[in-house]
Structure formats: structure tokens, C-alpha cells
């Protein structure tokens, strides 16, 4: 049985359908990637799984529990077993790295301070930032902030972790570090990982299974190899990053020549 089971998901923003009948299975112990062009609601999907948003139709089950029928306290109990890595890292800016990582432990347990310290140092060591523990979040680079956030996301040893665009805006070195970390975390801790991304190369490198979303639907799914061999032109365009193809380079509208000759001149 999959850990996360999404069935017939519909979600609307105003009149625009973000999801229009999406089915996704996320299997235990695997790294599943959700990919698609910008604006397809990948981040929205994570918020839906985390119970921060409600779907207009359809169900999302995590570990057998329907996320949107849970009570407030049941939902919070479930969230303790889910980690999420936000694009910005979402570190608390008024406390330092150590306190950020210690935050979930102090909030949810009554462990003595010496034990909190050991746990935090362990997690920071695993992301290579043990000696940066006294820095404030504003003193960290983007990649370091994400690593701290990763350490924080796994402090309570969750069953799954969701990554929101973990590679966006990173230099090659920190990108490599993150790819490596996500992979290691998944294997070492027996996590289930969900990665939302549009960085094809990095994601394909570590993902076991990929869902391609576009226009509110699942366009293609399969292992990275299957997707690379896909016969669909759209999938080929996306996976190889071609500038023109089924997804036009030009924003749809009138013909260029026609526009030049007859277009209205705005006053």
C-alpha cells in the first residue's frame, strides 16, 4: 500500500483549475518526484498533502488516514510524522541555527537540554553544519539555509519528507551537496521522499519515480528512464529543455505581422 494516495484530486483557485482529476501514489522508502512547468501547482500539491489547503474534490490519504477529515489535533499528530523543506528554508529568523533545529524537539518533547543538544548536533553534523550552529539565519547562504532546514525537518525522525523546489537558485556545488544529502537521508533513515521540482537533470538523478504534471493533469509517469524514452513530444520537450515544441515559445495571441500592421496603438 502506498504511503500517500491521491485520488481524483480537484482544486480551484478562483475559476482556474489547478488540479483537474489527479491520481498519484507515493510508495514507501522511495524518492518520488513531481515535475512540471512553473505554475502547475506543484507547491500547492504539497500544501494539500500537508493539510494546509483543502481540495475541492477528491481525497488524499497519508498512511491510511484521510488528511482532510482529521480533527485539528489528529492533523497535528500526523504532521509530526511529516517533514517539509520549504523553498526559502522557512527558518525562524529571530533565533540562531542551533535553536532552529532544536525548535521542534523543544516544542514536542520534554527532553532535558543536554539531550536536545546531542540530538541537534547529530542532525547538524549530518548536514555538515555543526560548526555553523551559532550563526543567525540571515548570515547563511541559500544552500546552507536549506541544509539547516533539512536538519530541522528530520529532527523528529519523520516517516516522510517533502521537498519544495530544493535545487532552485543554487550554485552547482550546493546543488550537488543537496542532491547527495537528499539521497543519503532517504536511504539512511528509511524515509519516503517527495520532491517537487523542475530541475530535470538533478531530479532524474535521484528519483525512483517521476510524475509529470501539466494543465492540472498527470501527463506522464514512470521511472526516469521510461520518461526519457517517452514517445510524447511534450515530455521530450520538457525533459530536454527545448525552447520550442508543443509548448510554444510565444504567448498565445494574434499573428505578429498582423499585429504590426493593424494593431491598435494605445494612447
Amino acid at each position: 500500500m502506498p504511503l500517500v494516495k491521491i485520488r481524483d484530486l480537484h482544486f480551484y483557485r478562483g475559476n482556474r483549475a489547478i488540479f483537474d482529476g489527479v491520481n498519484i501514489d507515493i510508495h514507501r522508502g522511495k524518492i518520488t518526484a513531481i515535475m512540471g512547468p512553473s505554475g502547475t501547482g506543484k507547491t500547492t500539491l504539497l500544501s494539500l498533502i500537508g493539510g494546509q489547503l483543502r481540495p475541492d474534490k477528491g481525497t488524499i490519504e497519508v498512511d491510511g488516514q484521510n488528511v482532510h477529515t482529521l480533527s485539528h489535533s489528529e492533523l497535528y499528530a500526523l504532521r509530526k510524522r511529516m517533514g517539509m523543506l520549504f523553498q526559502s528554508g522557512a527558518l525562524l529568523t529571530d533565533i540562531n541555527v542551533f535553536d532552529n533545529v532544536a525548535f521542534p524537539i523543544r516544542e514536542h518533547t520534554k527532553l532535558p537540554e543536554t539531550m536536545v543538544r546531542d540530538l541537534v548536533l547529530m542532525k547538524l553534523q549530518s548536514v555538515g553544519l555543526r560548526c555553523a550552529r551559532n550563526l543567525m539565519p540571515s548570515e547563511l547562504s541559500g544552500g546552507m539555509a536549506r541544509r539547516v532546514a533539512l536538519a530541522r525537518a528530520v529532527t523528529l525522525d519523520p516517516m516522510m519528507i517533502m521537498y519544495d523546489e530544493p535545487f532552485t537558485g543554487q550554485d552547482p556545488i550546493s546543488m550537488g551537496t543537496l542532491v547527495n544529502l537528499i539521497h543519503r537521508m532517504n536511504d539512511a533513515m528509511g524515509l519516503t521522499s517527495v520532491i517537487v521540482s523542475h530541475d530535470v537533470a538533478e531530479t532524474a538523478e535521484i528519483a525512483d519515480y517521476i510524475y509529470l504534471l501539466s494543465g492540472g493533469k498527470v501527463i506522464e509517469k514512470g521511472s526516469p528512464e521510461q520518461l526519457k524514452r517517452s514517445s510524447s513530444q511534450w515530455v521530450q520537450q520538457f525533459m530536454q529543455g527545448l525552447p520550442d515544441g508543443p509548448v510554444p515559445f510565444h504567448y498565445p495571441g494574434t499573428d505578429f505581422a498582423d499585429d504590426l500592421l493593424n494593431g491598435e496603438v494605445s494612447a
Partner: peptide
């Protein structure tokens, strides 16, 4: 407002800490 725009509130929610209470 800044905590919200920097996803700190959302982040707390996902850490199972209710930002309204905390």
C-alpha cells in the same frame, strides 16, 4: 506579516506547531 511571507508560519504548521498558539 514578514513571518508569513517568508513561510515561517507555514513552516511551523508543517512542524506540527500551531502558529496561532505559538
Amino acid at each position: 506579516g514578514l513571518m508569513k511571507s517568508t513561510e515561517q508560519l507555514s513552516g511551523m504548521e508543517m512542524m506540527a506547531v500551531d502558529p496561532v498558539r505559538r
